[in-house]
Design a protein around this nucleic acid. Sequence first.
RNA 1: GUGGGAAUAGCUCAACUGGCAGAGCACCGGACUGUGGCUCCGACGGUUGCGGGUUCGAUUCCCGUUUCCCACCCCA
Length: 438
Amino acid sequence: MTIKAVRGTRDLLPPDTALWNFVEETARDVFRAYNFQEIRTPIFESTELFARGVGEETDIVSKEMYTWEDRSRKSPLSDAPYEAAAEVLGKGQSLTLRPEATAGIVRAYIEHNLGQRGLSKLYLIGPMFRRERPQKGRYRQFYQIDAEIIGPPGSGSDSPVRDAEVIEMLATLLDRLGIKGWNLQLNSVGCANDRAKFNEALRQALEPVVGQMCADCQRRAVTNPLRVFDCKVPADQPIIEKLPRISHFLDEPCREHFDEVQNILAKIGIQFSLNDRLVRGLDYYTRTAFEFTHGALGAQNAILGGGRYDGLSEALGGPSAPGIGFAIGEDRLVMSLPESAESVQKKPDVYVAPLGAGMNCEAAGLARELRRQNLVVDLGDENFRLKKSFEAATRAGAKYILIVGENEVKADSFALKNLATGEQISVPRGELTQKIRA
RNA sequence: GUGGGAAUAGCUCAACUGGCAGAGCACCGGACUGUGGCUCCGACGGUUGCGGGUUCGAUUCCCGUUUCCCACCCCA
């Protein structure tokens, strides 16, 4: 039995990787225009970070994390094989593969006192890990493109301008990637006080009717009443329609904040729809919550999600640092791209084909010169028959083939053939770069 | 964690009621010693996901298991 990639993980191969690079380069380019800068945090963190940051009650923390006990630093067996070390692991630290990016970024923000620099605009691209059942658009190792605006209150980090800025940036990114037919849904889940009041009202409203609802809703009514709004069972919809809505429980500052976000978005021409049933799965969200969906993704139709988390820093023992951010599911983003992998792939400008004994050296020298001119150059082998070189050049998608044989070397002028048109000319060494680039 | 479908050559798929495991494409070589895409010929390619059972005989039927796909759940 050969060893295979483990369940829920996968290899990304060429030419698909060209698509991923296209997405990441475009994202970096767009983020730069909004003055975001990159942050890289560790792929594993103390388990406690996610327990406190994401929330003990969330599905992510309660059943989806890859968590293990590290070896104890003091263990006399610390350099023993892990089977033996496991015997003394009682004192080891509990570690977890990151299931999302925000907690780690806020941890770094606190740890390095980034609040002293004013407003931080940070982005992170990398793998996340959740132990869920794999499905279309859902993997156990998946990639997120994440960005956050966070800072002390005086830096304006809590301003609705920031919410609108982040959302508008996402619309720009999706447009730049050529993604058509995305849909933006917006909601405000209020502050902690609003949520407490709303939860209580919801619980009361559910009590007399929950018996008539589906089994899932009966469970949710106890564990997490907000999630009742996610229910898709038709028979439950009339009941859900009559339940209280978070929008009626927002206090005055939260309402004004949300109004201003909508106001800005409308003024700058970003289409959105309000959805007061939109709830997010992580405990730390406050006020603005949003989601971009796309039709071509099957059941996992959320291409990205985000929101505001004004109390997260404090929950992690840090200073007050309101923030807003989002996470794009890169796997899903790539799935909804209209581009083909072929179309974004960088093809060789020229295929250098040495022909006959001793020509490898000549060809290698020429290839080096051309590559130093920033041309994309592929290189053959003097043992190839010319036919084989042509086939290799064609397969590589090269624009030109450059033949390096004895005749050419003697004349210091090389046969350059355009593989698409069939036109062939003899080009002196000094003019090669210019001719190939033309 | 639950439910449905699937797994045969690198890829896409055949193989009747249980009877020698095949094709197309791709790959490699040749026809063709310095000019590609076309054509023709040849070669390579398999523990039929894995393990067990029934049978004279299993890709085929049965059980288990793993993985993938789809959906639930949840989320990006």
